[in-house]
């Protein structure tokens, strides 16, 4: 599979130029972390890569016909479904037992049959991460996935994520240098 090439990307919202001639190469089967100050266009870049927004100018290659999945900045879960159903909704091939085991490894026990609307913010975050990890993906985009998690939970989730990241193309937005170091990720910066 070829690398993802981003060439001379431009994006503006009205007068505000968000991406200005941005270029980068994202290696296939590797973990890349996009790090930049707030408002530098990290999420915009991710949205363009996911095909949710169009760039004003520029070219992206290497994402054609790939299964793209994501962990969004918000949880975006079906509030009335329980955690297992939310995860199985995006990949029905996962049986209940597999999902329940994966939830346990994320520290999510005793949440069976509870709608996610009743879970805490940190729990929802983990369900949202696991939904993406258990989905069948070629490329996974993560937009500040660990935001709002306490140190202990964050470490547990990071360890768990690593198991799913092997030989996968991962593009993660983060503000934390230690997260990039943990994965041994290539850091891509965006000039503000």
């Amino acid at each position: 599979m070829q690398d993802i090439k981003i060439e001379n990307l431009y994006k503006a919202y009205g007068e505000k130029q968000v991406l200005n001639n941005f270029s980068a190469v994202i290696e296939h089967g590797k973990i890349s972390c996009i790090m930049a100050p707030s408002g530098a266009g990290k999420t915009t870049l991710l949205r363009i890569l996911m095909g949710m927004e169009k760039a004003d100018r520029g070219k992206i290659t290497g994402l054609e016909n790939l299964k793209i999945r994501a962990v969004f900045q918000e949880d975006r879960l079906c509030e009335e479904l329980d955690a297992v159903s939310n995860i199985r909704l995006v990949n029905y091939k996962n049986n209940k037992k597999t999902v329940q085991d994966a939830l346990c490894k994320m520290g999510l026990t005793d949440i069976e049959n509870k709608p996610v609307s009743t879970l805490s913010g940190g729990m929802k975050r983990r369900v949202s991460i696991l939904r993406a990890l258990l989905s069948d993906f070629d490329v996974l985009f993560l937009d500040e996935p660990l935001k709002g998690l306490d140190m202990h939970t964050k470490q547990m989730v990071l360890n768990e994520m690593k198991n799913y990241f092997e030989n996968k193309t991962i593009i993660m937005i983060t503000h934390e240098k230690d997260e990039a170091e943990f994965f041994g990720a290539k850091v891509i910066g965006i000039e503000a």
Partner: peptide, 16 residues
């Protein structure tokens, strides 16, 4: 609309 985006990214069928 964010849920619609999520459904699109995860390729959830229309029926689901």
């Amino acid at each position: 609309s964010k849920m619609r985006e999520m459904a699109k990214v995860f390729e959830i069928s229309t029926i689901k």
